[in-house]
């Protein structure tokens, strides 16, 4: 039971960490200085949320675990983030679309998670919701600007939708730990967020004059991250993120 809770918390933490890490890669590479700072601010918000979850997981697990044990000492198969977030950043348009899909999910997810029966999780959700509200505003504004922008920007946004669409389905699949925690009222049923997410996507894409695949029951989606089956890309992320701890175990600074 505790184990399921830890797994559930780690799943949430891993999503925020990997998303934050990918966004941090934009540092110094943003299209303009202001957007560079916005992306790194959002990266830090996500890494901050990940820390809150990792700290809680470490307290529950005990056994000398710390918040750093999870990001630095686990291997690929133990990470539980959705595949969408580990995909490469691509161009600015690609990163934005990835952010938009995830921010829209996180917004509805944290809104619902505030009612978690676990007070600690509920309070992290309340704090994170304020941040995510801004993230969603940032990404959806840019989706609208670029979607309803020039022919070139529209084409790039349309291409980004095509690239990432099949990775959105996994957000709504419940993992085993998630199902166990749903029955206790700790977790949110991700499938219940789908109509809300679709509405946010539909409204924004309509304003952005972008088209997207019509949702069909039983449509095929990429999945695996929630069960530890990842794309090749996460290996490169962990190689960079864990290099120092693998070379010098226990190093502190």
């Amino acid at each position: 039971m505790t184990n399921d809770k830890i797994q559930y918390i780690l799943q949430l933490a891993d999503n925020s960490l990997i998303h934050g890490h990918r966004l941090s890669e934009w540092c110094g590479h943003g299209p303009i200085l202001e957007v560079d700072m916005a992306l790194t601010n959002i990266a830090l918000d996500n890494i901050g949320a990940a820390r809150s979850f990792y700290q809680y997981a470490a307290e529950l697990e005990g056994q000398c675990k710390t918040e750093d044990s999870y990001p630095y000492e686990r291997d690929i198969l133990e990470f539980r983030n959705v595949l969408l977030l580990e995909l490469p950043n691509g161009e600015f348009s690609d990163t934005l679309m990835k952010c938009f899909f995830f921010d829209a999910f996180q917004f509805h997810f944290y809104t619902a998670l505030q009612k978690s029966t676990d007070e600690r999780i509920a309070s992290i959700a309340t704090k994170s919701l304020k941040e995510v509200t801004y993230h969603l505003r940032f990404s959806s504004e840019w989706v609208i600007r670029l979607g309803d922008g020039t022919a070139e920007s529209k084409q790039k946004m349309q291409a980004a939708i095509a690239d990432f669409w099949t990775y959105t389905g996994e957000l709504f699949d419940a993992s085993a730990a998630e199902k166990a925690m749903m029955s206790e009222g700790v977790a949110v049923d991700p499938a219940s967020l789908r109509p809300l997410w679709e509405k946010t996507i539909a409204d924004t894409f309509e304003e952005a004059t972008l088209s997207y695949p019509i949702q069909k029951d039983g449509a095929w989606f990429q999945k695996g991250g929630k069960t530890g089956i990842h794309t090749e890309y996460i290996g490169f992320i962990l190689a960079e993120m864990q290099y120092m701890q693998k070379s010098y175990p226990g190093l502190e600074w």
């Binding site: 202001e34 700072m37 916005a38 601010n41 505003r137 504004e141």
Partner: peptide, 20 residues
Amino acid sequence: SLHAADAQMAIEMARDVYTR
């Protein structure tokens, strides 16, 4: 000061650059 396409973008960017 900063560069932005319109007022809304200017305010959002100011939020990111000057109120962090």
